[in-house]
């Protein structure tokens, strides 16, 4: 099985003074569902940022989708990101765009044709139960609804990898349930590799998954 992520002696830091992640080694196979847990400030989100190239390794090697993050050029990084779907805890929706256009964003960037784009967005809006709100702007929606939009956006271009940073952090049970169902569906039906950073793994998970735990800058797999 192909490995989507390979980290070797990977260290991450925001400044020279403090190392957040210290020489960790791990890999993720294609089509896996992975949870990364850890206490607040343990470096879970930092690790996730490095996976989409927002933070370059201080030391060691990190390969995502065959691309070495420490040496990647801006254009190659853009190319990699076009094949990744990211869900942020703070949603990161474009406020001046309607939710329909927000979901379209990765499709526009990937140069999909307009009719394909519209069909895909309509289908996703149905899945996230927001079809009736397609013309609204993000700030007109609740937190749960905004996160469902962010989820639909992450799925819209059928990425090879989905990275989710505490996607159900502050959500109601209904929205959280929808998010987990969508992530499970992407993994089982589309064979998308999913990496979720979270405090708690939901008890209702119906699929096999890998679990990594980060503590004191190190990572270990939990069985």
């Amino acid at each position: 099985m192909d490995r989507v992520i390979i980290a070797e002696d990977l260290s991450l830091s925001y400044s020279d003074d403090e190392t957040i992640i210290n020489k960790i080694n791990f890999s993720v196979n294609s089509g896996c569902f992975v949870f990364i847990t850890g206490a607040s400030g343990s470096g879970k989100s930092t690790l996730l940022k490095s996976l989409y190239g927002a933070l370059k390794p201080a030391q060691g090697s990190l390969v995502v989708g065959g691309v070495e993050i420490s040496k990647v050029s801006k254009s190659k990084l853009n190319f990699l990101r076009r094949h990744i779907g990211i869900v942020f805890q703070d949603y990161k929706l474009i406020k001046e765009w309607t939710i329909e256009k927000n979901i379209m964003l990765p499709l526009i960037i990937n140069g999909y044709e307009k009719n394909v784009t519209q069909n895909q967005v309509d289908s996703l809006l149905k899945h996230v139960r927001l079809k009736h709100q397609s013309g609204k702007y993000p700030l007109e929606l609740s937190g749960g609804e905004q996160q469902r939009v962010a989820m639909a956006r992450a799925l819209s271009h059928n990425p090879i990898l989905i990275l989710a940073d505490e996607p159900t952090g502050n959500l109601d049970d209904y929205s959280a349930g929808l998010i987990w169902n969508l992530l499970e569906g992407a993994n089982t039906q589309l064979k998308t590799t999913v990496i979720v950073v979270t405090h708690n793994i939901p008890e209702t998970m119906n699929i096999d998954y890998k679990h990594f735990h980060i503590e004191y800058g190190s990572i270990h797999e939990v069985n």
Binding site: Y52, A54, S75, L77, N78, F79, L80, R81, R82, H83, I84, I86, K92, L93, I94, K95, E96, L105, P106, I108, I109, N110, R153
Partner: peptide
């Protein structure tokens, strides 16, 4: 800035 950052996170080239 915010819009450009978000678009960048999804791989948009600078011209877009």
């Amino acid at each position: 800035n915010e819009r450009m950052s978000i678009m960048g996170l999804f791989g948009a080239p600078i011209w877009l």
